[in-house]
Deep mutational scan, measured.
Amino acid sequence: NKASVVANQLIPINTALTLIMMKAEVVTPMGIPAEEIPKLVGMQVNRAVPLGTTLMPDMVKNYE
Rank of each mutant, 00 (worst) to 15 (best):
T15S: 05
M22T: 04
V49H: 02
K2E: 15
N1H: 08
A48H: 09
V5I: 14
N1Q: 14
T53Q: 10
N8V: 09
T53G: 12
K61C: 14
P38A: 13
G52K: 05
E35G: 03
T28P: 02
V45T: 13
A34K: 04
I37G: 07
Q9A: 07
L55G: 00
T18D: 07
K61Q: 11
A24W: 12
Q9G: 13
V5T: 08
L10S: 07
V45K: 00
I13H: 03
P50D: 10
A3V: 12
R47N: 15
I13L: 12
A48W: 10
P38I: 06
N14W: 06
P33L: 10
Y63G: 03
I11Y: 01
A34I: 07
L17S: 00
N46H: 11
L19V: 07
A3C: 15
G31K: 01
K39Q: 08
Y63H: 03
I11P: 00
Y63V: 02
L19K: 08
L19N: 10
R47F: 13
N8Y: 13
I20S: 14
K23M: 13
A16M: 09
V5A: 15
V60L: 03
V6I: 14
A34W: 13
I32A: 02
T53K: 13
N14Y: 04
A34S: 13
V49L: 12
V45P: 05
P57E: 09
K2Q: 15
N8T: 15
A7T: 13
V6H: 07
V60D: 01
E35T: 06
Q9Y: 11
D58L: 03
M43G: 09
R47H: 14
I32W: 02
A48L: 12
T18Q: 07
V27F: 10
N46R: 09
P33W: 08
V49D: 01
V49E: 01
E64H: 09
T18N: 11
M43A: 11
V26S: 15
V5W: 01
E64N: 04
P33Q: 05
A3M: 05
E64F: 03
E35N: 04
G42M: 05
P50I: 12
I20L: 12
T54N: 02
T28E: 15
V27C: 13
T18K: 12
Y63R: 03
K2L: 15
N1I: 13
V60H: 00
I37Q: 13
I11S: 01
D58F: 08
L10M: 09
A7I: 04
A34Y: 14
G52E: 06
V49I: 13
M56N: 08
A48F: 05
I20M: 06
Y63W: 13
M56D: 10
A48M: 14
A7R: 00
P12I: 12
A3P: 12
T54P: 05
R47S: 11
G31F: 02
M43Y: 03
G31T: 01
L51W: 11
G31Q: 02
A48G: 07
V26K: 02
M43Q: 10
P29R: 02
P12N: 09
P29V: 09
M22V: 13
G31H: 02
L17Q: 00
I20G: 06
P50C: 14
I13G: 14
N62C: 15
K2S: 15
N14S: 10
G42S: 14
I37R: 09
Q9R: 14
G42Q: 14
M30H: 15
V27R: 06
I11Q: 00
M30S: 12
R47I: 11
V26M: 15
E25H: 11
E35L: 05
G31M: 04
V6Y: 06
P38D: 04
V6M: 14
T54D: 00
A48S: 07
I13R: 08
Y63S: 05
T53Y: 05
L51Y: 06
M22I: 11
K23H: 14
V60W: 03
P50W: 10
L19F: 04
G52R: 06
I11T: 02
L19T: 08
A16G: 04
L17W: 00
A24K: 04
M30V: 12
V27W: 03
V45W: 00
L40R: 00
A3H: 06
P57S: 13
Q9V: 08
V41C: 09
N1G: 15
M59L: 06
M22H: 00
V26P: 07
I32M: 05
D58A: 11
L55K: 01
L10T: 09
N14R: 07
P33G: 14
Q9W: 04
P33S: 11
T15K: 04
I13T: 08
D58G: 09
E64D: 13
V60M: 09
N1E: 15
N62A: 13
P33R: 05
P38G: 11
P12F: 03
E36H: 03
I20W: 09
P29E: 13
A7C: 05
P33K: 07
N14L: 10
P33M: 07
P12R: 05
E64I: 14
L51D: 12
V60T: 02
N14E: 08
M43P: 00
P29S: 10
N8C: 15
I37M: 13
M22N: 00
M59C: 07
T54W: 02
M56P: 01
A24S: 10
A24M: 10
S4A: 10
V6A: 03
I37V: 04
A24E: 14
P33Y: 06
G42I: 01
K61A: 10
N8Q: 05
A3W: 02
I11R: 00
P29Y: 07
I37D: 00
Y63P: 03
A24T: 14
I32K: 00
M21T: 11
E25V: 12
N14P: 02
S4K: 02
T18P: 01
A34D: 13
I13E: 12
N14H: 09
E35I: 04
M43D: 09
E36C: 15
V26H: 09
V27P: 03
M22Q: 02
M59P: 00
T53N: 11
N8H: 14
V41R: 10
E25K: 04
T54Y: 02
A16R: 13
Y63A: 02
N46L: 11
V6T: 10
A34P: 09
L55T: 00
P38R: 05
V6D: 00
A3T: 09
I13K: 10
V26C: 15
Y63N: 03
V5P: 02
I20Q: 14
A3Y: 04
A24D: 13
R47T: 09
E36T: 08
G52F: 05
D58Y: 09
Q44A: 04
N1F: 11
K2G: 15
E64M: 09
A24Y: 12
M59I: 08
L10Y: 11
E25Y: 03
N1M: 13
V5G: 05
R47Q: 08
N8L: 13
L17R: 00
T28Y: 04
M56R: 05
N1W: 05
